[in-house]
Design a protein around this nucleic acid. Structure first.
Lengths: 189, 189
DNA sequence: GTCTATACAAAGATAGAC
DNA sequence: GTCTATCTTTGTATAGAC
């Protein structure tokens, strides 16, 4: 059975995911994390001796794994890659509007903040994006694309999604996502 | 002739642009801005009575105007939109690598941080992106695209560029930009 | 009106009680 | 081993000297 400390630990990571997705690494205070998770102050460095970086790092890898699982599911269900991307964009747009434009890509905000100033976290964001890209490239390759082109297309699709999330959140509108969605067929042509 | 205070003011905005592009709104301290710009401590609230938000706001609008000017120049020089985007991606990739992956999109990092928590700055980032989108849509329309499609394509191109910059900075590699660049013809087809 | 010194709050991290 | 209280630093903002 799961110990109580493990639940607390999980709640702290979940709170960190929510807060860093909306406001980034520097915008998320550990006090906020404790308040949102309901965890007591002293538990923080007990569960995360590496401090804030460890906590945010685990939040990033957790979000990365979750999206990767979603991608794997969609890759299995969808008839083709356009259908996969359509379903993904719908899910992301819904999640974003439901959160009042607080939720977009769970790693992008932190990724941009740490890219040139925090090696440990930069490496984690790089690996998360690399995993998603590979998942898309594999499906494109399975559908008959040559490997090098599958890599180019997968990165392009991922960039398109990430960019649409940036624009949608910046403009507080799902329209950029919908516009990009209408052009997916052309992008994958 | 320009007063000395105006130069100091301009240097503070420039320093803010550099720092917020790399580390975001919350990651940029006013002490850092003062250190990088060489401005004295007391000048800050003299030149920017609105404090940090005014300073960052002016940095964002300045960066927006500068990129808009670049877009206008490229729109005039380039033979077609693919050539325009190629030139833009080349310039952005060069700028990014030359800065050690500190420079990507000058507004994206802040845009993601403030989207759901700072109304004044969110509005500025929304307007900056809106201006860039319009600039691209106008050129597409001038090239013969129907207006609604020009909007869709312009937003798609902008999203693609923004996403490529996110991935490139996260992975500290210009390869995502190069991969996207190779797919531009297909996207605009 | 330009700058130095400082106030006040919040950050991250730790020490020690239980 | 779980939590309370505190320590140090850094953040933004302001007051007052010149």
């Amino acid at each position: 059975m799961a110990a109580k400390g493990d639940e607390t630990r999980a709640r702290m990571i979940e709170a960190t995911r929510t807060l860093t997705e909306a406001k980034g690494y520097h915008g998320t205070g550990l006090n906020e994390v404790l308040a949102l998770s309901g965890a007591p102050r002293g538990s923080l460095y007990h569960h995360f001796p590496g401090g804030k970086d460890q906590l945010v790092g685990e939040a990033l890898t957790g979000a990365g794994r979750e999206v990767d699982g979603l991608l794997a599911d969609l890759a299995e269900e969808a008839a083709d890659v356009p259908a996969l991307v359509h379903a993904l964009l719908d899910a992301l747009a819904e999640r974003m509007t439901a959160s009042g434009f607080a939720k977009g890509c769970p790693v992008a905000t932190v990724a941009l903040e740490v890219a040139s100033s925090n090696d440990a976290l930069q490496q984690i964001t790089a690996e998360v994006y690399g995993g998603w890209q590979r998942r898309l490239a594999d499906r494109l390759h399975a559908d008959g694309r040559e490997a090098a082109e599958a890599d180019d297309v997968a990165t392009t699709v991922l960039a398109l999604i990430e960019g649409a999330l940036v624009l949608a959140r910046a403009q507080r509108s799902r329209e950029p996502i919908d516009r990009v969605r209408r052009r997916i067929a052309a992008v994958l042509g």
